[in-house]
Design a protein around this nucleic acid. Sequence first.
RNA 1: GUGGCUAUAGUGUAAGGGCAGCACGAGAGAUUGUGGUUCUCUUAGUACGGGUUCAAAUCCCGUUAGCCACCCCA
Length: 420
Amino acid sequence: MVRFNAARGVKDILPPETEIWQYVEYVARDLFGNYGFNEIRIPIFENTPLFVRTIGDTTDIVEKEMYTFLDKKGRSLTLRPEGTAGVVRAYLENNLYARERVSKFYYVGPMFRYERPQAGRLRQFHQIGAEIIGTDSPLGDVEIIIASMDFFNSLGLRGLTLYLNNLGCRKCRPSFKNALKKYLETNKSKLCDDCKRRVDKNPLRVLDCKIDSKKLKDIPVIGDFLCGVCSERFGRVEEMLKLLKVDYTIDPHIVRGLDYYTGTVFEVKTEALGAQDAVAAGGRYDNLVSDLGGPEDIGAVGFSLGTERLIMVIKTQGLKIPSANKTDVYIATLGEKAKDTALEVLFSLRRNGLSVETGYDKKSLKAQLRQADKSGARYALIIGDDEIEKGVFILRNMKDATQTEVKSGDIIEIILKRIE
RNA sequence: GUGGCUAUAGUGUAAGGGCAGCACGAGAGAUUGUGGUUCUCUUAGUACGGGUUCAAAUCCCGUUAGCCACCCCA
């Protein structure tokens, strides 16, 4: 017997875990709504060049992690590995910059990266993200950072740390990059093999290499190279965070794996997971809109969080989530006539907004009540042939095991009254 | 992509060359039409493919998958 397996690195999300997903997404919609973000729904796949251009052709994501395929007309398409590129593409394609000064979006959905799977690292995973496009104000940076922290806090997460860095802008980053490159070349012998490759291709990445970062003394620090505008803005971000009493740690090793980042970048890490501890990350990307052919000087900032990782933290910290979908009434029947009556009552109760269950197979009353108990129903409605003769049903309170005969004609009214 | 660990009923585990067991779950029943506790019964498993051996869940090889670290990141 051949059985089918899910593809590697993908996961079924089953009840009751889907309740956590629904709750997390509900809280996200509510909170981002309060922050002025509107939902945007963008395609799962895009033309491949969009991702190559925005994420950067020497990044790991583009070099080895994309699900890229040809369609029947030979076009190269790619399953989105992240959300920002698609959002910015949609923003430009729909000329949203002409419609409003600043656009704020959030999105929810699956992303795809061909990586070796591990707990918290899947090939299809889910992100919730938000973007502010149309301003380079430090207030945007702070809104994005605080929206993400508030989101985690409102779910009750503990043990999170916010790490912050600044990557500089078009003006100041090149001088830092050159200094770094020069330094790395003279110290090349100390580097690991991966980093030796990076020196030419993407020197910034050496900064977050765990092997080398400790060995390299007096390596250039971006902070010393920031131009006036960048350091002023970053100072303002720090001021606002302090004013709002948001704790953070400056970490010069945060460089991000996507090339479009400029200025403020951040990661939120948890102590509850293993090596896959980044639960959210983001930053400013002031050049991306113009790089994709849009107007100059449209600043933007955004972040995304990994839903699977978030839910892992929720589970390991044992956080409570409100449970939904409780059965109100379970209908049990006795006899043949009762079946038809029960059928009518079942649907009319449901049409009155009640959550009602009944059994599918012929079973003893005992078994039916057992099912009722298991379903968590507050009431069992027992419909028997004898009672039908008298024009009544038996309404049993499952919690205190009391039961009363109620007139069958009044059943909806009575149950609605008791349930509320 | 590199290195390592692991794989036994739905779930969690035991058996470490010689009869696959336990707990939970699920289903049925315990004097006729009344749930939860208790008791009884039933259900269901050695991931897949090879090899060694009289004999393999157990040893070996391969595959697949999960996990850990690296890498990377959400």
